[in-house]
Design a protein around this nucleic acid. Structure first.
Lengths: 178, 178
DNA sequence: GAATATACTTAGGTAAACCTAACAAGATTC
DNA sequence: GAATCTTGTTAGGTTTACCTAAGTATATTC
């Protein structure tokens, strides 16, 4: 019988980061240890303890104080779903928006949380179509007009990517034209 | 001279919702009143008071207790940027992912927050390209294979859109196949 | 097997973002 | 102009998610 794990309609952003870390550590090292989770999620060890207690209550991990951590079947399903969201987002950012891999990885981590399953489903289909139809892709080369020219027919204050199509980190001050 | 408004590197998700509401109410009614902001953001009136105090300190609004609220120049710039993020996201969801307008609006509100400016810039360019090149679009019609077929070569547990290409709200249980 | 080091937890605190209940300031009405 | 809304604020509480400092368990070393 054990616990009444409150099932929890949907994981918070914060908790899902822990789930993902546990999943990846388990693949690497067979088991996930609290200290390594802290490292992966970039929080203090006490924060991990608190998160583990919640995840345990929610039935997503198997966990005894001072013991190793493993994902339950439900936890693993959750982790895979998160991973798919991440991958789909990253794919899209590289494939369709032409972001360099490192930046796509960064941004995907911010966006993935807010992808509902129906949108994810379509995004995956879209990516696949776009991947296998290179002729339909938007050409991200320097010859492309920049945002402000396309949108407003005026020269913008700054470009958002350099001559090589690599983003500069500087964004155009959209306020000036919108 | 006045206040040392702490400038605040970046608005929190919550505060930006208030800024947007103030912007839209100002357009409609000339001025924004606390009660209407509460209605627009869907929070209690005390929550609005708290948020206004923070936004005032950050230099984004002009605000005296018991008075009307107006955006400063910086606040207005912030609001326009947020609006652009929202519009770009919604456009993308309809144009590229084929979501119906109402659903696109819903989901855009969740995703927009996490769009950095460099990605926003590219997204706008992408949308514009996609809008003016209908031949390059992915055809979201019922004949298209569903997610699971494309990805894994197997029939999925459920479709994520019905015969008319309208989403059902039901998402496929990706866990089962991924 | 006692001493030390590492790993984990508890205790207690902070900050953001919300809430309800109660009070105060403006605006309306009679 | 006093009584009564309506609106806005303060007071005090909750939850989530983090933190540091200090104590406890386990593992390692001598």
């Amino acid at each position: 019988m054990s616990k009444t794990h409150a099932s929890m309609e949907s994981l918070t952003d914060s908790l899902s980061r822990y789930v993902l870390a546990i999943y990846e550590l388990s693949l690497e090292n067979k088991v996930a240890r609290s200290k390594d989770i802290a490292g992966a999620v970039c929080v203090s060890r006490p924060s991990v303890t608190g998160a583990l207690q919640k995840l345990d209550k929610a039935g997503l991990i198997e966990y005894e104080p001072y013991g190793y951590v493993t994902l339950t079947r439900r936890g693993e399903a959750e982790a895979r779903q998160l991973l798919l969201k991440h991958r789909a987002t990253q794919d899209f950012l590289e494939l369709a928006l032409g972001l360099p891999e490192s930046r796509a990885l960064e941004v995907a981590g911010q966006i993935e949380q807010s992808l509902p399953a129906d949108v994810l489903c379509r995004l995956v289909q879209f990516n696949n179509f776009y991947r296998s139809n290179p002729d339909k892709r938007f050409d991200w080369n320097p010859a492309c007009k920049n945002l402000c020219q396309i949108l407003y027919g005026v020269e913008g204050p700054r470009k958002c990517h350099d001559e090589n199509g690599i983003i500069t980190g500087q964004s155009p001050t959209l306020q000036d034209v919108f």
